[in-house]
Simulated assay, not measured.
Amino acid sequence: MPTVVSRPSTAAGVNGARPTAPAPAPAAGELTGSADLARIAAGLGIELGEPADTVPADARKLSRVLFARLRAAEEGTAEYSYVRGTLIELNMALVKFAASRFAHRKEPMDDIVQVGTIGLIKAIDRFDPSYDVEFSTFALPTISGEIKRFLRDTGWMVHVPRRLQELRLTLAKASDALEQLLNREPSPAEMAAHLDLTEAEVMEGLTASQAQSASSLDATAPDSGPGEGGDVLADRVAREERAFETVLCLEALKPLIAALPEREHTILSLRFGAELTQAQIGRRIGISQMQVSRLLNRTLTGLRAALLAED
């Protein structure tokens, strides 16, 4: 852009009067609006629309120029705020790409993108144009690390021992550090060497990290064949326990039986515990077989009604 030089008014220096000349123009090359950005883009051979819709190759070219402007601008000025905001818009594709790697998690994608944007802002604030690396290469590990920290803090779906929880945190930190160093996700063997652990210990920690999320038993199995009607997870990992309902009924009956009068309680115990006949029970407690039958029927009817009644 052309350099604009404002000359001081000699009248003001002589008599102190406020000069009537127009206000000074913005500093040379100052970037504070979309028109200035469009001129920079045109100079790079880029037809600029909305910054967020810029294709990645053009976004990289513009970002190189804008980072130089950002570092030259004074923090807190209009130019600094505009350039920083434009860099965020230009590089939102990095956030969406990083977030897509975590699409299988239970957290809403909007939340993951929002957290990833925080990582992008941190990367922009830390990046130095003198680094011999593309901004995207520098930013992706930072964005992914921010998302991973968010997912680690969302809680565990299944309880695991404290030792494994701490091991998982250690592995997560090591993974972030190695990912920054290697520009890719480290292998279990590389993490084991970095932490002086065995590969089996690393695999145990990685397995424990899966307890942070759970899949529905009604979900289709990952390796199901194509087409509708694939196997659901419940068909593979669950089976019907026929005695389960019996156990539930017995647990529900315990307080009902405990509340019975002593004689009815004794009759139930002798009939279904000791498996005595009604005549034997009558002789044992000193009543007739007919009385035992009536008491037993009345007790069972009452228990059945109480068991079926809604709370």
Rank of each mutant, 00 (worst) to 15 (best):
E30Q: 15
E30Y: 09
L31I: 06
T32C: 15
T32A: 14
T32P: 11
T32W: 11
G33S: 15
G33C: 15
S34K: 01
A35L: 15
A35Q: 14
D36V: 00
D36Y: 02
A38I: 10
R39K: 05
R39I: 03
R39H: 06
R39W: 07
R39Q: 10
I40H: 02
I40V: 14
A41F: 13
A42V: 07
G43Y: 12
L44K: 02
G45Q: 08
G49E: 05
G49T: 10
E50Q: 10
E50L: 09
P51V: 05
P51L: 01
P51D: 01
P51T: 05
A52N: 04
A52D: 14
A52V: 14
A52T: 08
D53H: 07
T54G: 12
V55F: 00
V55Q: 09
V55A: 05
P56A: 14
A57T: 10
A57W: 02
A57I: 05
D58P: 12
A59P: 12
A59F: 14
A59T: 09
K61V: 08
K61C: 11
L62Q: 12
L62A: 14
L62F: 13
S63I: 09
R64G: 10
R64K: 11
L66Y: 10
L66F: 12
F67A: 06
F67I: 06
F67E: 07
A68V: 12
R69I: 01
L70I: 03
L70R: 11
L70Q: 06
L70N: 04
R71C: 03
A72G: 13
A73T: 04
A73E: 07
E75M: 05
G76Y: 14
G76A: 13
G76E: 13
G76F: 14
T77C: 06
A78G: 00
E79H: 00
E79Y: 00
E79Q: 04
Y80N: 13
Y80Q: 07
Y80W: 15
S81D: 15
S81W: 08
S81N: 14
Y82A: 01
Y82M: 04
V83F: 10
V83W: 12
R84W: 03
R84I: 00
G85P: 01
T86H: 06
T86K: 02
T86F: 09
T86C: 07
T86G: 10
T86P: 02
T86W: 03
I88V: 15
I88M: 09
I88N: 02
I88T: 15
I88W: 07
L90K: 03
N91H: 13
N91R: 10
M92V: 07
M92Q: 11
M92T: 06
L94K: 03
L94I: 05
V95E: 00
V95C: 01
K96H: 13
F97P: 00
A98M: 01
A98V: 04
A98H: 01
A99M: 11
S100P: 11
S100V: 04
S100M: 13
R101K: 11
R101C: 00
F102M: 10
F102W: 04
A103C: 03
A103F: 08
A103M: 08
H104N: 05
H104F: 08
H104C: 00
R105V: 09
K106F: 00
K106T: 12
E107M: 13
E107W: 02
P108C: 06
P108Y: 11
M109T: 05
M109K: 02
M109N: 03
M109V: 03
D110F: 14
D110I: 13
D111C: 02
D111N: 06
D111G: 02
I112G: 03
I112E: 05
